[in-house]
Design a protein around this nucleic acid. Structure first.
Lengths: 252, 252
DNA sequence: ATGCTAAATTGGGTCTGACCTTTAGACCAC
DNA sequence: GTGGTCTAAAGGTCAGACCCAATTTAGCAT
């Protein structure tokens, strides 16, 4: 229409030409994900893969590197070393979320929003599925908060408690997410001195009441209390945040 | 004492020797995450990095590959190609969650649990922040469900709607998570024929009512209705799952 | 036998240098 | 204009060597 364009009706979409290393990586990834190889199974040595695939060692190594970054294999050096199958764990989710948050310089509000969405459910699941060991961990970490001397110790222990709640829910997806969120909040809240004795006291009390609900397997109470706790924490953190950082550079 | 040992009081703890490529990758990653380089900034060509860092091209390339897998750079071949800074997006979170779910062969129940935890909040945020465009997308995708001919079309459109809800909430973290969960549920629900006209009808109606709440910015109703919808969907899917998969003999 | 040391072996990590392929751009021929 | 050809820039692949780390294992001293 606008210019000479439609001489032929044949249309093609842009086509992908995969790289050799990607091909290998994909093949191995599918095999690993299929569960064909149990955790810890050693992959063939690089030089062996070279002869099997007829690719160069460079290519093979790039493929392995990809899988390593994705958390699907673990690579050890030295004799009896090599690439070993590994099922991805919470950490890999946590680290990718971490990249998203840091890389996009996401508003702290997003993180808190997400947390408010997730933590109450974690509490609910914890109330339903917690074991005695989970409970012990909750109590230990909360005492650590009460005993925390400086800001950093407080935040660290705080993170531990929240992760412990997630863990007690025995849902690996939620646990992974919570780990990432906690880490992000930890680093974000660190440099500002909004933690005083009062805050710490309130926190400990709130944690105790949630813990009690989890102990008594009272799911509804756990949700309610956690919701309240997270919400007020978020509100407080946000307020401090607005006081300190004036303009958040927003775009798109 | 035991053997010649204590000639000096100096003690050292075991030390980590990071790999060269990791060092480079970490350095670049920090710079990128710091926001120092705006999106699209080209990194120096590989051969240039070689002379700057005095590492070999192999090492440089491994570092770049790491960053690429982490979604921090995009690499194009050809003249005017190279590595370009990219902020990680929802997809990277989605794919890592995907690996977790597939790799661990997580119980479908975990996925549904997570979804029940998250989607109501997505609905709430959507009700609060939706734009006119978001609303239009919700309606379009839901009509696509009603018009879907086969199972695959139904599931695909279904996923689209749910992702659209998350998108309308304008929280990138939750969006990423929802994308991954939807994908997982899509593949999990695919091969079983539990979708009949009745299911489709119920789904469309539920979606309509949620959409209406979002349209009217009624957050509470959105949460309530989405909770109900997701819960019943999960229950139905689980039931079918238990009926069909005694042992999962799937592979291609 | 026992226990320690030293060499051999296996395997990943790095380097070099070459060549191939893809892409953008320019120039030319029809 | 349309299409071919060439060139330069950049990533992709390859082959081969060497380096370093972790185990085994063989040998030797007690």
């Amino acid at each position: 229409m606008t210019t000479g364009e439609a001489r032929s009706a044949i249309r093609l979409s842009p086509m992908e030409v995969p790289k050799a290393s990607d091909v290998l990586a994909n093949e191995l990834r599918e095999r690993i994900l299929s569960g064909e190889y149990p955790e810890g199974t050693p992959l063939p040595p690089e030089r062996e893969l070279v002869v099997q695939t007829r690719m160069s060692r460079t290519t093979v190594r790039e493929a392995l590197r990809i899988l390593e970054v994705q958390g699907l294999i673990r690579i050890k050096a030295g004799r009896a070393g090599g690439a070993f199958v590994q099922r991805p764990g919470e950490e890999s989710v946590a680290s990718s979320l971490d990249l998203l948050i840091r890389g996009r310089q996401l508003r702290l509000a997003s993180v808190h929003e997400t947390r408010e969405a997730i933590e109450p459910s974690c509490a609910r699941l914890a109330a339903l599925h917690r074991t005695a060991g989970d409970l012990a961990r909750l109590e230990v970490t909360n005492e650590a908060i009460a005993a925390s001397a400086d800001l950093d110790a407080f935040l660290r222990a705080n993170v531990d408690w929240h992760v412990a709640v997630a863990t007690a829910g025995h849902n690996e997806i939620l646990t992974g997410i919570m780990m990432a969120l906690s880490r992000a909040i930890y680093t974000a809240t660190n440099n500002e001195g909004f933690v005083n004795d009062e805050v710490r006291d309130i926190t400990v009390r709130a944690h105790r009441s949630v813990t009690r609900a989890i102990k008594e397997r009272d799911a509804d109470a756990a949700v309610r209390r956690m919701t309240r706790h997270v919400h007020s924490y978020a509100a407080a953190a946000l307020e401090v945040d607005e006081r300190t950082t004036v303009a958040v550079p927003e775009e798109d």
